[in-house]
Nucleic acid binder design. Structure first.
Lengths: 189, 189
DNA sequence: GTCTATACACTGATAGAC
DNA sequence: GTCTATCAGTGTATAGAC
């Protein structure tokens, strides 16, 4: 395990505060207090508050993109691909429970990276929808609007970060299995 | 249709801005600009920014509470109750697409009404979970953790506001039917 | 690497004229 | 009911000492 740099520590603590109050409501003084230093000292490690937000959001968004690329590359069935996507969300969410909040709710406060983020997200959704449409065409899943199916599954997966930390005893494998059952069962033919 | 008061107009416009940027990032000057007046003039109609947030969140939260009370009072089966809850969310969300964003993401910025909101929410979730547990006990729905089932269904329903406005052609009846199929099918035995 | 001191734009909100 | 003028407090960020 590589030693955490001071910069990484700041970003980690910031993500936690952003989850609690949102990016706009967290001040550099709040962040400094949580780090037990003064606000001015933060700037020895980071360039701006905006840079912190970018680090958090873009790094996670790119993990999803990489994961989806891997899912698309496989020769699995539609249902198997959906299961892989569920596992991808459980894994990334459980390892980034604070950052996921910023990804979901503070992306609109991105400045220079806003369009980059939007493209990553829309590409991801398009890939997801394509998988569902193929599943409908091959008869694997039910023939209702792919938009509604994607919305239903994806909003559940995107909200995992809200729920995983509440249950400290939650077994991630069991959670994944339960989600597989509930979410897949809802769309399988 | 009753004529909208100036106060109601301010609250409506504020909710729209809160959805776009979040409570903390919206300034009274932003709100005034959107109303085509100056910030100081807002205070002739409202007491504070905080009061606006309270109006938006508490009024919607109480609609859910009233709806749940009605669902609980019926003699319907667990599945029928779930369908009523889905219909409740579709109705409230479609009529409060802006306010739902504040309810979901800005409740932590409530001050005097924070505990009131938290109690309404936790009561609602407990009632929801009770319905699911009864369904498991009666054999109507599958026997997996009620927490996971509730989480999955409720996060989808709570995110409806994000999705309804995107599809201007969406037929709410059809949406409700699709959600009934996907969400119920996922938990039915 | 952290501090104190500070710049200076912006925040919610009020007073009082019209 | 809206305006201008203004206040006290807080926001991000920088300069320079240690």
């Amino acid at each position: 395990m590589k030693q955490e740099t001071r910069q990484e520590e700041i970003i980690r603590v910031a993500a936690k505060l952003f989850k609690e109050k949102g990016y706009s409501a967290v001040t550099m003084r709040d962040l400094a207090t949580a780090m037990n230093i003064k606000a001015a000292s933060l700037y020895n490690h980071i360039n701006s508050k905006q840079d912190i937000l970018e680090s958090i959001i873009i790094s996670i968004a790119e993990k999803f993109t990489v994961g989806m690329t891997s899912v698309l590359a496989s020769n699995a069935t539609c249902i198997e691909k959906l299961k892989e996507i569920i596992a991808l969300h459980v894994e990334i969410s459980s390892q980034n429970i604070y950052g996921m909040a910023a990804l979901n709710h503070d992306w609109m406060h991105l400045e220079s990276q806003l369009n980059h983020y939007k493209k990553l997200r829309s590409d991801y959704e398009n890939d997801f929808k394509t998988i569902l449409i193929e599943g409908v065409n091959s008869g694997e899943i039910i023939d209702i609007k792919p938009d509604v199916m994607m919305f239903s599954i994806l909003t559940t997966l995107r909200s995992l970060y809200l729920w995983i930390p509440k249950k400290e005893d939650v077994n991630l494998k069991e959670l994944t299995n339960n989600l597989n059952e509930i979410l897949i069962k809802g769309v399988v033919k």
